[in-house]
Amino acid sequence: MLVITRKKGESILIGDNIEVTIVKAEDGTVKLAIEAPKEVRVLRKELYNQVKDENKNALKGDLSILKQIKK
């Protein structure tokens, strides 16, 4: 894992075609701008994990997720 320090307006490059720019950093949060080709999927990890878990439960026949959606 690479850990670096960046200030507002500074960027990092991932490969040749993905750029992550710091837009705002204050009060313990950071706002990022991500420029990537359309074919590159960019997701928040917690959302990705939630969808993965829901898909796994759906394959098991767990209907509790459907009950949550109904609420």
Rank of each mutant, 00 (worst) to 15 (best):
V20T: 11
I22N: 14
A25T: 04
R44T: 13
E19V: 08
K8N: 06
S11N: 00
L59P: 01
L43P: 08
N17H: 06
K60P: 05
E10A: 06
V20G: 09
A33P: 04
I4D: 06
N49F: 04
L59E: 10
V20D: 01
R41A: 08
P37G: 12
V51C: 03
D16I: 08
T5W: 01
V51Y: 08
D27M: 10
V30Q: 01
K24Y: 04
A58Y: 10
A36T: 05
N57D: 12
I12V: 05
L43E: 09
I34Q: 13
R41S: 11
K8P: 00
L2I: 08
E39V: 04
Q68R: 12
L47V: 14
V40H: 05
K38N: 02
P37E: 01
L66D: 02
I34F: 04
K70W: 08
K56C: 03
L43M: 03
N17R: 03
T21G: 12
D16E: 07
K67P: 04
S11F: 07
R6T: 06
R41N: 12
V51A: 10
E46A: 00
K7H: 05
V42F: 00
I12T: 08
L66P: 00
I14L: 13
V3F: 05
K60M: 02
G9A: 05
V23D: 15
D53Q: 09
D53P: 05
I12L: 06
A25G: 01
S64E: 01
G28A: 05
E54T: 13
V23T: 15
E10R: 03
I14C: 00
P37N: 02
E26Y: 07
L47A: 13
A33V: 10
K24P: 06
L2W: 15
I65R: 14
G15R: 03
E46N: 12
D27C: 09
V3K: 15
V42W: 06
